[in-house]
Design a protein around this nucleic acid. Structure first.
Lengths: 235, 235
DNA sequence: TAATTTAATTATGTCTGACATAATAAATTT
DNA sequence: AAATTTATTATGTCAGACATAATTAAATTA
């Protein structure tokens, strides 16, 4: 009889810790009770009575939920349910000095992919006001000299605005989160290829595409604009 | 004198809790000691002695680090440093039933953007073996009848393979993570527009582009293939 | 009476010390 | 030398206490 059949027959033992179980039970509780963000949870001591476990366990489970962004607890008021913000959860772990190089490189790549792919959302949702704002940003940029210098602040301003135009706040926050990683990867020795000095599609040209072009043109424009980064990844 | 100047002069008070400080100190410790994944941490009681705080506080700080994916602790062996996996951190919070609708919709959008944007990585890194695998997947798909039926399993298989080809494991895991959300959004009432039955660029055509086309063609091809989803977002 | 200050309450934050449990290392037996 | 038993050790769980901050109620003052 093979192992799988055996475990099937005997049934697997529950190796999860007490805290695991409490955590699960609490989430179940939220869902079945249809609690909405802002609703308050039972107090720690009430939970100890109800679940018959120590306050330590309750606290640890609640802590997990808090780190997941599911609840928010204040003194005296107790804990209340919140709508979890995925990005701020990631934020806690997003320390470039701790992540390993290959992960950092992959995040760098994801940012590039995301930016190329968001062209459709920009074209769909851009307003005349946005275009004016983009033009304002571009006008404030220093004239490009013969050699292209990577102006990090202007890059951030321009691309940040693009994310904003998508109207997708998760994406926008994601970008903000990825920025330090991107910067770190860009300036550290992780990417072996040197930084190219060539100029490709400029910010000004991208604005022009947004104003007069199509989603397809914008995709290609952004892709080309990012060529300096892509070429460091590809041979 | 305005508030800002005042706080500048007086200096802001540290409102962080003890656990916050310990957490920070521990991370500092990792970084300055240049600990690598696999290295073991001091025991809880040693930390209690070293930092002069109770074991409760130490444990809570360690718990946070564990939830961040920074450490992994086993009985007797103590805690060891690990390289955090961002995706598995997100996984804990990615419960469609708990996230609110607007966040879910934004995640849905991000997935679309990512998929369009990853075309360059696919074209750069695809191998003949990958193409053969894609063809195999496509061949196994049922013939399209006059009406396009959304075959979730085949969608997953095909698109999963695309992510795999990018060679970016973070992106691949990200997709796997987003799948339940995507499915949930697709089939729940969050998107008001109905599911279109029209057929656009097929899987087979995408494979053909990958084999014979360019990155630009693939971007457009994937975008068109996903039109059914895009059109539910845009009017 | 209204506004302010003070006191009481309450729930989380921190501390201490103890025992349970599981994984490893050491000692023993075969 | 291999297998078994025992001892050790570090995390997991427990219980109860006090500290602290935020809120509410009461008291005071204008």
């Amino acid at each position: 009889m093979d192992i799988e059949q055996l475990t099937e027959k005997i049934g697997r033992i529950d190796k999860s810790s007490l805290v695991d179980k409490v955590e699960f039970k609490l989430i179940e509780f939220f869902v079945t009770k249809q609690l909405k963000p802002g609703d308050s949870l039972p107090k720690e001591l009430e939970l100890t009575d109800a679940l018959k476990v120590s306050r330590t366990v309750i606290r640890e489970a609640l802590l997990r939920l808090r780190l997941m962004g599911l609840i928010d607890s204040k003194k005296k008021r107790g804990a209340i349910l919140t709508s979890p913000d995925l990005v701020s959860i990631l934020e806690r772990s997003m320390n470039p000095r701790i992540l390993d190089d290959s992960t950092l490189k992959e995040i760098f790549e994801m940012r590039l992919a995301l930016e190329v792919g968001m062209a459709d959302f920009i074209m769909e949702r851009v307003t005349p006001l946005d275009i004016a704002a983009l033009k304002f940003i571009v006008d404030a940029e220093p004239q490009a000299t013969e050699r292209h210098i990577f102006q990090i602040e202007h890059e951030i301003k321009f691309h940040g605005k693009l994310y904003e135009i998508t109207g997708n706040s998760t994406m926008k926050k994601f970008q903000k989160l990825l920025l330090p990683v991107f910067d770190y990867v860009h300036s550290s020795g992780i990417l072996s290829k040197p930084v190219s000095e060539r100029r490709f599609v400029s910010h000004r040209e991208i604005v022009d595409i947004i104003e007069n072009g199509s989603a397809e043109m914008l995709r290609n424009g952004i892709r080309n604009h990012l060529e300096n980064h892509f070429s460091r990844l590809f041979k």
